[in-house]
Amino acid sequence: MKHKGTVNSEKERISVATFFNPKFEVEFLPATTILNPQTPPLFKRVTTETFLKEAKSRKLDGKSLLGILKINRNPTK
């Protein structure tokens, strides 16, 4: 899986791996407090079960699993 990050030459960046085990019916979605017409959601809502099933069924083609969850705001591309 590729890891992408933004480089900031003025601040140190720290990554922390976090592992948890939510129930299958838990739905992941953006915090509603940050959504508005100027900042719409970038990704589809998804349950843990759907995400895990999709992750296990994908072939290792170097593409991000999050790519399939991204909302396409410009359908011509």
Results as ranks from 00 to 15, higher is better:
57 S>E: 15
39 T>N: 14
47 T>D: 02
24 F>R: 06
14 I>A: 05
57 S>V: 06
9 S>G: 11
32 T>L: 15
17 A>P: 02
72 N>K: 12
46 V>Q: 02
58 R>P: 09
56 K>G: 08
6 T>H: 13
73 R>G: 04
16 V>N: 11
53 K>M: 09
49 E>I: 02
40 P>W: 01
49 E>P: 00
37 P>H: 07
21 N>W: 08
17 A>Y: 14
60 L>H: 12
40 P>F: 02
44 K>D: 14
6 T>W: 08
58 R>A: 10
65 L>C: 08
70 K>W: 03
73 R>M: 10
77 K>Y: 15
58 R>L: 14
68 I>G: 03
28 F>G: 01
9 S>I: 12
1 M>F: 13
28 F>Y: 13
26 V>G: 03
75 P>H: 05
76 T>Q: 09
66 L>D: 04
14 I>E: 07
34 I>W: 03
38 Q>D: 09
55 A>G: 01
17 A>M: 14
56 K>F: 06
18 T>D: 11
72 N>E: 13
47 T>G: 01
65 L>I: 10
17 A>E: 13
55 A>M: 06
49 E>R: 05
37 P>M: 06
35 L>M: 11
33 T>C: 13
34 I>Q: 03
1 M>N: 06
5 G>Q: 09
43 F>Q: 00
14 I>R: 15
68 I>N: 04
69 L>P: 00
46 V>E: 01
18 T>V: 15
71 I>S: 13
19 F>W: 07
33 T>D: 14
28 F>Q: 00
22 P>E: 04
1 M>G: 02
20 F>Q: 08
38 Q>V: 02
28 F>R: 00
69 L>G: 01
5 G>D: 05
58 R>W: 15
40 P>A: 06
59 K>E: 11
74 N>R: 11
45 R>P: 02
1 M>V: 01
46 V>L: 03
67 G>M: 07
39 T>M: 13
56 K>I: 00
60 L>V: 12
39 T>D: 13
48 T>K: 00
60 L>E: 14
70 K>G: 14
33 T>P: 02
61 D>W: 13
49 E>D: 07
10 E>R: 14
2 K>M: 07
62 G>H: 08
15 S>E: 09
4 K>W: 15
13 R>C: 07
44 K>W: 00
42 L>K: 12
47 T>S: 06
68 I>K: 02
15 S>A: 06
3 H>P: 01
40 P>G: 09
19 F>N: 15
1 M>I: 05
3 H>I: 08
36 N>M: 04
59 K>G: 12
41 P>G: 03
59 K>W: 08
46 V>M: 02
24 F>D: 12
31 A>V: 08
44 K>C: 14
14 I>P: 01
6 T>E: 12
19 F>T: 15
68 I>C: 05
41 P>N: 03
64 S>F: 14
7 V>Q: 07
45 R>S: 10
20 F>H: 10
71 I>W: 03
30 P>M: 11
61 D>H: 12
75 P>T: 03
75 P>L: 10
73 R>S: 10
41 P>R: 01
17 A>T: 09
24 F>T: 07
8 N>P: 00
32 T>H: 11
66 L>Y: 05
33 T>V: 08
9 S>T: 11
73 R>V: 05
23 K>G: 04
28 F>C: 00
57 S>C: 14
26 V>F: 15
32 T>C: 10
66 L>I: 06
58 R>N: 13
47 T>V: 04
23 K>N: 08
20 F>M: 14
36 N>T: 01
46 V>H: 02
22 P>G: 05
68 I>S: 05
24 F>E: 08
